[in-house]
C-alpha cells in the first residue's frame, strides 16, 4: 500500500491544465442561494440577462417596471432578469485501500479527475470543496471559490492518505449531515463497496445533490487475466477466497461485473446523474471529455 505519486507540479502540468481549459460545466438550474457566478439560477432578479415579463404586484421593485411596455399597453409589467449564481462542486474522491492497490493505482487517476473537476468549477467562479472518503468522510477543503483556490485544492488532494475499506453508506450519511448548499457531488471511485452495488445505490439515494459518477476502471476489471488455483485476498478487508479459475467461474465473474456496470448506468440514468468510466491506465482528461459533450457538461 502506497500513497499517491501525484504531486502538485503534476496537477499543474500546463498540458493538463490546457486540456482542462476546454471543458465547462453548464447547469440548467442552480440553487437560489450562493454568490453570483456564471450559472443560471432559478431566482429571477438582478442579473444581466433578460428572461421574462410579469404583471406588477404591490411590493415589487418599481425599478424593474418596463415603462416602454406601460406606454404601449397601459399596463404595468416588470422586466425579469435571470440571476447568475455559482454552482457548488463537492469533489468526493475515494481514498480507500483499493484505490492504492496495483501497479497503476487508481488513486492517481482519481486525483487527476478530481482536480480536473475542481479546476473547471473554479474557472467558472464556482465554489469547490474536497471531501475524501473511505469508510468515513473527511473534509479536506471546505467549499469556497477564488483565484487561489485551485492551489489549495491541489494541496489537499496530494495530501490524501490511504483510508479504510470502502463504505459508501457511512460516507454519504456523513456528507448529508453537513447540510451543504445543493450543488454537484462528483464522486470519483472504483465503486467497489463491501456491500456490493446495492450498498452504493442505497448510499446515494438519500443524497439531495446533483450527482456525477467518475468510475475508475481497469481492463482487467471486466476481463480478469487470472488462471489456476488461486487464493484471492481482498486488499481492503483481507478476506481470502479460494478460487479455481475455470471457464465457468470466469463466465460467472464477467456476468456479475456486467450487471454491476449496468446497475451503475441504470442508477445514473434514473438520477439524471453523470457517469463516466475512466481507464486508469489511459489519459484522464481525454476520457473526461466524453462526459463534457462538446466541451461542456450540461447538468
Amino acid at each position: 500500500m502506497t500513497t499517491t505519486s501525484v504531486t502538485i507540479p503534476d496537477l499543474f502540468d500546463p498540458e493538463f491544465l490546457a486540456s482542462v481549459e476546454r471543458l465547462k460545466l453548464i447547469a440548467r438550474r442552480v440553487a437560489p442561494s450562493g454568490s453570483p457566478a456564471e450559472k443560471r439560477s432559478k431566482q429571477q432578479g438582478s442579473g444581466m440577462e433578460f428572461r421574462d415579463y410579469r404583471p406588477y404586484s404591490p411590493g415589487d421593485d418599481i425599478k424593474a417596471i418596463d415603462w416602454n411596455v406601460y406606454r404601449r399597453l397601459g399596463k404595468v409589467f416588470l422586466r425579469l432578469f435571470e440571476e447568475q449564481r455559482d454552482l457548488p462542486v463537492y469533489v468526493v474522491p475515494d481514498v480507500s485501500r483499493s484505490m492504492f492497490h496495483g501497479d497503476v493505482p487508481r488513486i492517481d487517476a482519481c486525483l487527476r479527475a478530481a482536480f480536473a473537476f475542481a479546476a473547471i468549477a473554479l474557472r467558472e467562479a464556482d465554489s469547490v470543496g474536497v471531501f475524501p472518503f473511505s469508510d468515513t468522510l473527511d473534509v479536506a477543503l471546505r467549499p469556497g471559490s477564488g483565484s487561489g483556490r485551485l492551489l489549495r485544492v491541489a494541496t489537499s488532494l496530494t495530501k490524501v492518505e490511504p483510508g479504510g475499506p470502502t463504505d459508501f453508506v457511512a460516507a454519504m450519511r456523513r456528507f448529508s449531515a453537513m447540510r451543504l448548499r445543493p450543488g454537484l457531488v462528483v464522486v470519483v471511485s472504483d465503486f467497489f463497496d463491501r456491500n456490493g452495488l446495492e450498498g452504493v445505490l442505497d448510499a446515494f439515494r438519500s443524497v439531495q445533490h446533483r450527482l456525477c459518477f467518475v468510475q475508475l476502471v481497469r481492463k482487467t476489471d471486466a476481463q480478469p487475466n487470472l488462471e489456476g488455483e488461486l487464493l484471492l485476498q481482498d486488499c481492503e478487508s483481507g478476506h481470502e477466497s479460494e478460487v479455481s479459475i475455470t471457464p465457468a467461474v470466469l463466465d460467472a465473474y464477467r456476468e456479475l461485473y456486467r450487471k454491476f456496470e449496468d446497475g451503475m448506468t441504470s442508477f445514473a440514468r434514473k438520477r439524471h446523474a453523470g457517469l463516466v468510466r475512466i481507464d486508469v491506465e489511459d489519459n484522464v482528461v481525454d476520457q473526461l471529455a466524453q462526459l463534457f459533450e462538446s466541451g461542456a457538461y450540461v447538468l
Binding site: S98, F192, L231, D234, C235, E240, S241
Partner: peptide
C-alpha cells in the same frame, strides 16, 4: 493473489 475486491 491480492485483488482490489473479492466481491465478484
Amino acid at each position: 493473489v491480492v485483488v482490489d475486491t473479492t466481491l465478484f
